[in-house]
Design a protein around this nucleic acid. Structure first.
Length: 534
RNA sequence: GCUCCCAUAGUGUAGUCCGGCCAAUCAUCAAGCCCUCUCGAGGCUUAGACUCGGGUUCGAAUCCCGAUGGGAGCACCA
């Protein structure tokens, strides 16, 4: 309004008086009038939500560099997936570069197997990286930068005990090492490197009185006398995350590094360090950790369960590890969509797994073959049943999936709960076959052929013949309930599946009608199912 | 305890930077109807939210102050 030369102050009273006048007219009349004047205003159109990531500050096409820096100390889980998908998608969005960097600067944590395991997990997720390296390969470079810091008097060697350091930090008090001159610090540092000095660390000269406790002279390097999975005994002095993270982001050209919110307090340290080293400062950003109800991600919680056998391993279908999700039948694209739906907000939230399921269902439904599975089966004898050979489609809509042929006789198996409500004389339909009438209900169910024509609104239930395969489906439930291990978290459903299921291969995700989607594993003709979701 | 971050339907999220087009988005969940030889999918409909209190302004979800609630950090782990 102001742009067009109108002042709101002058116009609003006029608008108010006009609306007051119009509001005297009845609503019906108002609507009729509006229909004449501007019918388009009466329609409310649905807006589509756009799931693409918000624009990155200071980003230029072709010049964005992101990175995913896992520590090779475990299998990747959905939390990692969030980080890596955000990193990767941003690089793609801006035609930039995406780096996979192994932050393996703690030989106590890093394990050889996990470098490859994590890459395997990432490939499964559909992530491709333009560059890959290990932080541990750059240690010499880090030592040089440390020396530079010492020479500039931005860092010093501290020989206090961990307890004293902690104490000093807590109370904002400098320790005596802080007063050491830079020449001496350089000597001490060299002694640390050549192993003639133990029990010492290199600290940044921050500000011991700073409100931000992360700035109270954080540790930059420490001695860890343990063989490294890649470098063996070559090094004993290792940079901490504060040092290595900042330096690597800068040196490798990362423009937009993301990390989770718990690092926020360390931002100041990150920038101070790069400032002191006169290194380029990336545009650091944070987002909240992803947590899923009943599915904790922390090794602290999961490891004991694996060790005591409550959980089969890191690929257990109750776990939010990528391996667990894969085994259960969750597709990478579903994870990706789910993550992008969540976005990169800083709000702490706990999401239901139902959102992952909903995304997955939309992807698999159009292509999942339909089969019959009867849980807790009971026998059904249809006395005068015609022998039939019946071709049944594998999908109600997608004809390309073809069909299977089932021969039927007198004997069937059906699910007890399906006919619990039915009495002798009731008619129901064996789905895709014919209608039968119950003649007797005892241990077995006796029935007679009734008719062929579909009866509207009659019950249609799934069945198998006496040629079926026995199979178990493992059904996951929340692993934790109210923060405690749920001992009913894994249910085994016993049942009969129709014969055609025996031809399925490991990895196929199918739907057992009225039961749910199931991922099949077929090992040496032993079929087992993992319940994906409803 | 100190410091920092966050606050929109049951859940998650858009909008908040830059106040008006917000009578607040979308998804999920729930309920109902239609469709379907599955309780799946699809279609339609309904229900449901700006934490609270002040202030600034003609006008606040949006800006300011305060309170409350939640989370994180205070490691020689990342």
């Amino acid at each position: 309004m102001q742009k067009d030369g109108f002042s709101p102050k002058e116009i609003i009273p006029i608008v108010n008086s006009v609306t007051a006048e119009i509001n005297k007219i009845s609503l019906d009349k108002q609507i009729r009038e509006l229909e004449k004047l501007a019918p388009e205003l009466l329609k409310k159109e649905k807006k589509e939500r756009d799931f693409s990531l918000p624009a990155l500050p200071g980003a230029e096409k072709g010049k964005v560099v992101t990175r995913f820096p896992p520590e090779p100390n475990g299998y990747l889980h959905i939390g990692h997936a969030k980080a890596v998908i955000v990193d990767y998608e941003y690089a793609k969005k801006y035609d930039g570069k995406f780096i996979l960097r192994f932050d393996d600067t703690n030989p106590e944590n890093a394990q050889l197997d996990f470098y490859d395991a994590q890459k395997e997990d990432l490939r499964w997720l559909g992530i491709e990286w333009d560059e890959e390296y290990r932080t541990s390969d750059n240690l010499e470079k880090h030592y040089k930068l440390a020396e530079q810091l010492i020479k500039q008097d931005n860092a010093y060697v501290c020989q206090c005990s961990p307890e004293d350091i902690k104490h000093g930090r807590y109370h904002g008090k400098e320790c005596t090492c802080c007063g050491t001159g830079c020449g001496d610090n350089l000597t001490l540092w060299k002694q640390i490197l050549n192993s003639s000095l133990d029990d010492a660390i290199l600290r940044l000269r921050g500000d011991m009185t700073c409100d931000n406790t992360a700035m109270r002279d954080p540790t930059l390097f420490r001695i860890i006398d343990k063989p490294h999975p890649i470098h063996g005994d070559k090094y004993r002095v290792w940079p901490t995350y504060d040092f290595a993270g900042a330096v690597e982001d800068s040196l490798s050209g990362v423009t937009h590094p993301f990390r989770t919110k718990e690092y926020e307090l360390r931002d100041e340290c990150y920038f101070k360090l790069l400032d002191s080293l006169k290194l380029r400062k990336p545009h650091l950003m944070e987002f909240a950790r992803l947590s899923i109800e009943g599915m904790p991600v922390s090794k602290r919680k999961i490891k004991p369960l694996i060790e005591n056998g409550s959980v089969s391993g890191y690929d257990d279908i109750r776990l939010p590890t990528l391996r667990g999700l894969k085994k259960r039948g969750i597709l990478p694209d579903a994870i990706k969509q789910f993550v992008l739906e969540q976005g990169i907000s800083k709000v702490e939230s706990s999401v239901t797994f139902g959102l992952v399921e909903a995304a997955n269902r939309k992807i698999i439904d159009p292509n999942a073959k339909r089969y019959f599975f009867v849980r807790d089966p009971i026998k059904l004898i249809v006395e005068n049943a015609p022998d039939m050979t019946k071709k049944i489609n594998l999908h109600p809509g997608n004809k390309e999936l073809g069909s299977r042929t089932i021969k039927t006789g007198k004997t069937f198996f059906i699910q007890e709960s399906d006919i619990k409500e039915l009495k002798v004389g009731d008619v129901f339909r064996l789905k895709d076959l014919y209608n039968i009438k119950i003649t007797e209900k005892k241990k077995d169910i006796l029935a007679e052929y009734d008719s062929d024509k579909l009866i509207p609104n009659s019950a249609k239930i799934q069945w198998t013949t006496d040629k079926h395969i026995k199979m178990n489906v493992l059904v996951p439930h929340p692993l934790f309930v109210k923060d405690k291990y749920n001992k009913d978290s894994l249910e085994t459903v016993n049942g009969f599946a129709e014969e055609a299921v025996s031809n399925l291969k490991t990895g196929e995700i199918i739907q057992f009608e009225r039961f749910g989607f199931v991922r099949i594993e077929n090992v040496e003709n032993k079929i087992i199912g993992f319940f994906t979701h409803k």
